[in-house]
Write a protein that binds this DNA or RNA. Structure first.
Length: 594
RNA sequence: GGGGCCGUAGCUCAGUUUGGUUAGAGCACUCGACUGUCACUCGAGAGGUCGCGGGUUCGAGCCCCGUCGGCCCCGCCA
């Protein structure tokens, strides 16, 4: 680690000074974080990226003009200070400060740049809330002076360098792919860029470098990676930005196990860089298992609360809801919550509201109170039912009677909600998981049309290829997601290397040959030119940085993020452009008339 | 596209429930005092289009309608 930050203007960074520097003459540059004027004696906390150091001005040893100048300093003024590092007497040391054993006795002071009174405070009082986020974004240069955000960006940098080193050492080539690309008609909306040279035609910003990285494999580059900026014109969330960064990886002559092992190594290196350890191998679970046991393809395994099917318990009972659903081919599934009987009626109502918002008609509640089963459905159920439901004394069972398409998301919500309320989620736990064997297709419940679960270049599992024509929704893909604490870190697949299979896939997806040629012709041509078996993965870099920084929002690990309305408040983008510019681009803006 | 929360001094927030005197506090800012503080302390001062527009009312920060902005969620994100 580089530690010599001396330049022609300074000898040290402020936060680097320690007892060992006592007696040295130093020159420092930084921002006035805060000043304490005791009348005569005056302290200035000088701040740079490395931290704070206390500079003292004492009339008994500091020239009068210097003291006067120091007394005039406003917060956030940029100064150059010259002085001597002095060990503080024991009683005057500050254990909360890295530099707290020393201070700098100033012998020189130069104001480089006086600062306007900051629009939002940089030095905050203890317990003072952060300024509103729109102000933080509008005055981003001030917000970024906060040590928390600086630490986040430092960590982000280190994670990037670890990624580069780890992959480079394994023979991966960092190759840039175009930012001006071809619009993709499927999936997320593209950001479009008008062509000036070609009237009426548009580039698109990439949603991912997917096709390019496959073509690099066709070209024989063997192993590729990129810390790739991607763009999607969709609505935002706390964990979703319109432009974001992925660690994009593709390799040739590779199978599922190779990608998994490679990713475990990279994720391990990233987590170690942030001071955490990871298991050498992550547990695995098939998609089907994840949906059955957790109702979700990225289950949070920090806690149990597994979903169990209890249809048998309700079969042949007079309980109306269950009867109806079972007769229609649905199931009764739910979660047994040890100690859940302690949840109040109101709390369970709120959990039910969450289940309803996810689409369930309601929750069936059963409580084991001292061996006695209680709840609206209890009277329909016989002796020993509590044991069959796995409800111990004090346990609460919450069940959804419905088809899986409804029950899965509802039970996922219930499970997460209950875990949060019962404090079962430990922030310090790190639960990794591979979810494998995703289905290749998803059938639209209304139109019956097939759509890709991952993307149309994902290969089917070899043993499922015979099902392609007979039962395509049962075909499993060579696709995998890596999950951390219930969040998807990334996903990938082994791609289709056979142009005939790729054409067949387009056919199943309802993309005719002409359309396929127009949209993906350059990929099909590439595959026909001799494609190695290849596959890869893309990891959400911002999300990883956010989790490793312990941040709540992606915006706290991105230097200049967008708001949830996809605006950049600092620079004011997007913005209207002069009519002449639009004319050059052959664009007319029409607004809906009032 | 839909739902929820928020918007009062440069910043963080009270005040809105029940409309009623001159809209308050802390920090920051300005001035003054103070020689070992580290969220220094003490005194004084200045600082307001209560997001914006319209309405109801004798009277609106407070009630109603609209609108703008921010955040969170659903849809969306192959």
């Amino acid at each position: 680690m580089h530690t010599d930050f001396s330049t022609t203007l300074r000898t040290h960074r402020c936060g680097a000074l320690r007892a060992e520097h006592a007696g040295q003459r130093v020159r420092l540059g930084g921002w006035v974080h805060r000043a304490r004027n005791l009348g005569g004696l005056l302290f200035v906390d000088l701040r740079d990226l490395s931290g704070l150091v206390q500079v003292s001005f004492d009339p008994q040893r500091t020239p009068r003009e210097l003291c006067d100048l120091a007394a005039s300093l406003g917060n956030e003024t940029v100064v150059l200070v010259e002085g001597t590092v002095v060990l503080r007497p024991d009683a005057m040391q500050n254990a909360e400060l890295g530099t707290g054993q020393v201070e700098v006795h100033a012998s020189g002071l130069r104001i480089v740049s006086p600062a306007a009174v900051p629009a939002i405070p940089v030095a905050r009082a203890k317990g003072e809330n952060l300024p509103a986020e729109d102000l933080r974004l509008r005055h981003r240069y001030l917000d970024l002076r906060r040590t928390e955000l600086q630490a986040n960006l430092v960590l982000r940098h280190r994670l990037m360098q670890v990624t580069r080193r780890h992959l480079s050492e394994r023979g991966f080539l960092e190759i840039e792919t175009p930012i001006l690309t071809k619009p993709t008609p499927e999936g997320a909306r593209d950001y479009l860029v008008p062509s000036r040279v070609h009237e009426g035609e548009f580039y698109a910003l990439p949603q991912s470098p997917q096709l390019y990285k496959q073509l690099l494999m066709v070209a024989g580059l063997d192993r590729y990676f990129q810390i790739a900026r991607c763009f999607r014109d969709e609505d935002l969330r706390a964990d979703r930005q319109p432009e974001f960064t992925q660690i994009d990886i593709e390799a040739s002559f590779i199978g599922v196990e190779d990608v998994i092992a490679l990713t475990e190594g990279l994720v391990g290196a990233l987590w170690r860089e942030a001071g955490f350890t990871t298991p050498a191998q992550f547990p695995r679970m098939t998609y089907a298992d994840a949906m059955e046991r957790y109702g979700c393809d990225r289950p949070d395994l920090r806690y149990g609360l597994e979903i169990r099917e209890v249809s048998d318990v309700f079969r042949d009972t007079e309980f109306g809801i269950a009867r109806t659903v079972l007769a229609q081919g649905g199931r009764v599934r739910g979660i047994a919550i040890p100690g859940g009987a302690a949840l109040s009626r109101k709390q369970v109502d709120e959990i039910e509201a969450a289940a309803k918002s996810a689409g369930a008609a309601g929750l069936v509640r059963l409580k084991n109170n001292g061996g006695q089963l209680e709840g609206p459905a209890a009277k329909f159920l016989g002796e020993g039912t509590a044991a069959r439901l796995g409800l111990e004394d004090g346990a609460l069972g919450l069940y959804v009677a419905a088809g899986d398409r409804v029950a899965n998301p509802a039970l996922d919500r219930v499970r997460q909600d209950v875990a949060r309320r019962l404090g079962l989620v430990s922030e310090s736990d790190h639960a990794f998981l591979w979810v494998t064997d995703f289905p290749l297709f998803d059938r639209d419940p209304e139109t019956g049309a097939l759509a890709s679960v991952h993307h149309p270049f994902t290969s089917p599992r070899a043993d499922d290829i015979p099902l392609l024509d007979t039962a395509p929704e049962r075909v499993r893909a060579n696709a995998y997601d890596v999950v951390f604490n219930g969040t998807e870190l990334g996903g990938g697949s082994i791609r289709i290397a056979d142009p005939a299979l790729q054409s067949r896939m387009f056919g199943l997806l309802g993309i005719d040959e002409a359309t396929a040629q127009a949209r993906f012709g350059f990929l099909l041509e590439g595959l026909r030119a001799g494609a190695p078996p290849h596959g890869g993965i893309a990891l959400g870099f911002d999300r990883i940085a956010m989790m490793l920084a312990g941040a709540d929002s992606l915006r706290d690990v991105i230097a200049f993020p967008k708001t949830t309305a996809a605006r950049a408040l600092f620079e004011g983008a997007p913005s209207p452009v002069p009519p002449d510019d639009l004319r050059d681009l052959h664009i007319t803006v029409t607004r809906p008339s009032a």
